[in-house]
Design a protein around this nucleic acid. Structure first.
Lengths: 126, 126
DNA sequence: TAAACAATGTGATATTTTCTTACATGAATG
DNA sequence: CATTCATGTAAGAAAATATCACATTGTTTA
């Protein structure tokens, strides 16, 4: 459902609303933004505008903090999530060609013998 | 789905957001409220706060106006809709008892012969 | 046709909300 | 014990919104 995701990512909420929805102070919300955990948009007057997804993430952050995880930990969690998502996106965007598959299989066989060099093979692979 | 309806009726949007979402001026939105077509909530500082349902209704109003229907007409439309909804709510709240059903059936049979009096039967129906 | 009405624009002024920046603070941590 | 982390708080500026009044432009109506 693409339209739903679009609606959830629409930046339509001012910080006052988000404070109530997430039960967080403005200071906390701005601090989490400063730490890169959320990226609310800005309107023409420089006011932060949040989406429902932002609210969800803030609630998540709150849970993590309640569980004793600190900013660094939460950052790492989101960094890994993003990395995984990026990999999946890449896989979807550029499915392997036959040539890729053949080269990968070739390299796998080479690696079996523990012969792999740090900079990659010094010989032509095909 | 009860939760969805709840979310759509949450008053979380300031008028500036609603102006963009519905492509209406603040003057228009306030005027439609003055006419009783919408009833946005107010926050602690007297600012109007709108729900997604409010936005939907504003878009509807816009369509009606574009179709040449004036305020009075739109008011009437919503009055009738509300009346119908009230009836349905009442019907749901007080489902028919067996006795109701028997009386209704009884009356139906009476009506078949075209014998029904204007003020209803003058005789006991059960 | 003049007057009235309907729907909206515009301007003034007050209040509320949000912004940034800076400093304060208690708890955890090395 | 000195730092760092996460948050509170205060000040001053800028933006958003409120109400109220008057203006404008079509459309009815007497």
């Amino acid at each position: 459902m693409k339209e739903k995701e679009l609606r959830r990512s629409l930046a339509v909420l001012p910080i006052g609303t988000v404070m109530k929805l997430a039960s967080l102070s403005a200071r906390q919300i701005r601090y989490y933004e400063e730490q890169g955990l959320i990226q609310p948009e800005r309107n023409a007057g420089n006011r932060r505008m949040f989406s429902l997804n932002d609210v969800d993430r803030l609630l998540e952050i709150k849970d993590y903090l309640a569980d004793g995880i600190n900013m660094a930990g939460i950052k790492e969690i989101y960094a890994q999530q993003q990395q995984k998502a990026a990999q999946q996106a890449e896989a979807l965007a550029q499915p392997l060609t036959d040539i890729d598959v053949r080269r990968i299989l070739h390299d796998e066989f080479l690696n079996i013998g523990g012969l792999k060099t740090k900079d990659g093979p010094e010989y032509p692979t095909h």
